[in-house]
Amino acid sequence: MSVPRPRSRTRSFAALAAAGVLALSWGGSAQAAAGSTTVEPAGDGFTATLDGGAVFDAGGVVVTCDVSVTAPGNGNNLVPEAPGNHNPGGAVTGPINAPTFQNCSTNIVLVSASVQVVDPVWDITIQHGSPSLATMVIPAGGIVVTTRGLASCTAVVSPDATAHVQGNWSNGNPASTLDFDTSVPVDVDGGFGCPTSASHASFDATYKVTNADNPSSPITVTS
């Protein structure tokens, strides 16, 4: 499945991720102001690793990636230092390295797939609640999914506007969990077998989030 090129830059359908997989950036919130949020341990780096498969489905063309991860580097994937790790009136936000997507396949015989993340840095916003919510903020056209073979298509995730991919956060030890079961706008281009009429693609994935600096101290979200 190959998705159309965005107006200005090439973006990939797979770049969704995510969780989204996760654009874990600590900074501006995409969610409405709510109760207080605290992310701990302050200042520690975190890694989010796919648990199972990341599944993109646009019009019945399904792309599944078995490997996806985002890890600390270049000053990203860090819980804000105190007091920035606590927001008495809403979410905590910060930048993360965009997750990679590898070992991808499709539900169509003789059709291969790849997912490209165009923008290297995403943002993530976390809001404590019942459940706690984590929103990955993906730049416009930031993910491009391409298929080749009997169906050669290109899918660009949210080519014209920033995408907000929301998932549920659950505290755990040693790993917390981030679950995505959502959809995003998508623009699909291609010939025979391509779902060119699809306007949205579903995204399902579960990530395990661990403390890269101190594995015995889990990354947690509280009030």
Rank of each mutant, 00 (worst) to 15 (best):
S183T: 11
P185G: 05
G190K: 03
V165W: 10
T182H: 04
D189I: 00
V165N: 13
H164E: 13
G167D: 14
A175L: 06
P174Q: 10
S176K: 12
S183Q: 15
K208M: 12
F180E: 08
V165H: 13
V209S: 07
N173T: 15
P174T: 09
T182F: 03
T210I: 03
D179C: 00
T196A: 09
D204H: 02
S170L: 11
V165P: 10
S202G: 08
N168C: 02
F192Q: 06
V188D: 08
G172V: 09
A175Q: 12
K208W: 01
G191H: 03
N173S: 15
T162K: 10
V165M: 14
T162Y: 06
H200P: 00
T177P: 06
N173P: 10
T177W: 00
Y207H: 06
P195G: 06
A175I: 01
D187R: 11
N173A: 15
C194P: 11
N173D: 15
A175W: 03
G191E: 05
T182P: 04
V165Y: 08
N168H: 09
D187V: 01
L178T: 08
A198F: 01
H164R: 13
V184G: 06
G193M: 10
L178V: 11
V188H: 04
C194I: 01
S176N: 12
N211S: 02
Q166E: 14
P195L: 04
L178I: 12
T182E: 12
Y207F: 14
T182N: 13
G167A: 15
S197C: 00
S176G: 12
Q166W: 00
W169L: 08
T206E: 14
G172Y: 09
S197H: 03
P195D: 07
W169C: 11
Q166T: 15
G172I: 07
P195N: 08
S202M: 02
D181P: 00
H164G: 03
D204Q: 05
A205W: 00
V184I: 12
V186Y: 04
V188Q: 02
V184A: 15
A163C: 08
T206A: 09
N173Y: 02
G191P: 07
D204C: 00
V186A: 09
A201S: 13
S170T: 14
P195A: 06
S183R: 07
A198S: 13
S170A: 15
G172E: 10
T182L: 05
C194N: 10
F192K: 04
V188L: 04
L178M: 12
N171E: 09
V186C: 08
D181T: 08
N171V: 11
W169T: 09
G190H: 03
A163R: 09
P195K: 02
F192Y: 05
G193H: 04
F192T: 08
P174H: 03
F203I: 14
D204E: 05
F203C: 07
W169M: 09
Y207N: 03
T210S: 13
P174D: 07
A201V: 05
T210A: 05
G167E: 13
S170V: 15
V165T: 13
T206Q: 15
T162S: 14
V184Q: 10
A161W: 02
L178E: 13
A201P: 03
N173K: 13
T177A: 10
V165C: 12
T210N: 04
S197W: 00
D189T: 09
T206P: 12
D179H: 02
T177V: 14
S197Y: 00
T210W: 02
